[in-house]
């Protein structure tokens, strides 16, 4: 939340956060995780605040997660998605932003298919903007919840070896995780054919390999990305079958591994493609743990931007 504009702050990217800001959010998320275990899952921290979920790209998990986080903090939530909004009638992002501001909201959570759209919106709205995923750019709350999950399960972040496998080029999750992991002192190895590795990514402080087996024996955390069939049409790799052969976490690979790394996935999983279905069942608790952590982490983010004395 480096982006300070007057006394307003945003969460636009991990790349603009300092390490201590990341750690503070993770610590705060730990206290909020407790709220979700109560029978009455609600605290009055953001009572009277209105948060808009502006989702211009299909999303169920992230939108629900932000909505639950806001509601557990007692904020009012309005959902605004492209299929139901005037955006489908050709209204510009600027006009949509100005309309929302005119309604007097306290924060806007933006999911958008275009990289940079949340950053652009900060010029048009006077309340905090939270990036819920923008194009291939960043998905900061996903990376934060991933760090939270890793820290809860492995007890540390610094010095950990993390392999991220899959379509790095199209992945905002990969970009945010790379920034986040590097900032907290983890080592990152990207695993993919070169056709899915974006130009000059090593400058982000990561290593790159095309050999999954090289990464499997090395990593403490194996982070699998969702692979999309469209990439075959873009000639990024020949077929899903070949992808699974070279980069899938198959049964054969999994049962050979000892010790086994922590397996993570941002969801939704393509069973039988990047991960074998039986392996998925075996590691499912971690992946659903990521989802649970998402609510707590987003509560921490909303509280940090909107709560306390700044409210």
């Amino acid at each position: 939340m480096r982006e300070v504009r007057g006394n307003r702050r945003d969460l636009l990217s991990i790349s603009s956060l300092e390490k201590d800001e990341i750690i503070n959010l993770l610590n705060s998320a730990r206290s909020f995780a407790e709220v979700s275990t109560r029978s009455v899952k609600k605290v009055p921290a953001l009572r009277g605040k209105t948060i808009v979920n502006l989702f211009m790209e299909p999303s169920t998990r992230t939108r629900m997660s932000f909505e639950l986080a806001a509601k557990r903090l007692s904020a009012d939530v309005v959902n605004f998605s492209s299929s139901t909004s005037s955006l489908s009638k050709g209204e510009s992002l600027k006009d949509t932003a100005k309309t929302i501001v005119a309604m007097g909201v306290d924060a806007v959570v933006v999911r958008h298919g275009s990289a940079g759209a949340p950053q652009m919106m900060t010029a048009w709205v006077d309340c905090p903007v939270i990036n819920a995923g923008d194009g291939m750019h960043e998905h900061p709350t996903q990376a934060l919840l991933d760090l939270f999950t890793i820290r809860e399960l492995l007890g540390r972040l610094e010095g950990l070896k993390v392999a991220i496998v899959g379509d790095i080029d199209h992945s905002r999750v990969a970009r945010s995780n790379i920034h986040a992991l590097r900032k907290v002192g983890a080592e990152v190895l990207l695993v993919a054919p070169q056709s899915l590795i974006p130009q000059d990514i090593r400058r982000m402080g990561v290593e790159v390999t095309g050999a999954l087996d090289e990464a499997l024996g090395w990593c403490d955390v194996l982070y699998l990305l969702r692979i999309q069939l469209e990439r075959v049409n873009e000639s990024r790799f020949p077929s899903l079958r070949e992808y699974t052969l070279l980069y899938g976490l198959t049964e054969a690979r999994w049962f050979e591994l000892d010790p086994k790394p922590l397996v993570m996935h941002p969801g939704p999983m393509n069973r039988g493609v990047e991960i074998d279905s039986r392996v998925a069942d075996e590691v499912e608790s971690v992946i659903t743990g990521q989802v649970a952590a998402g609510v707590a982490l987003r509560m921490a983010v909303l509280y940090d931007l909107l709560g306390g004395s700044r409210g």
């Binding site: 923008d134 291939m136 970009r175 130009q199 000059d200 990514i201």
Partner: peptide
């Protein structure tokens, strides 16, 4: 332009 900054910004590159 395709390069480090297109990667950083998540924008499609023009090599």
């Amino acid at each position: 332009n395709e390069g480090y900054y297109s990667t950083f910004l998540g924008l499609r590159g023009i090599p």
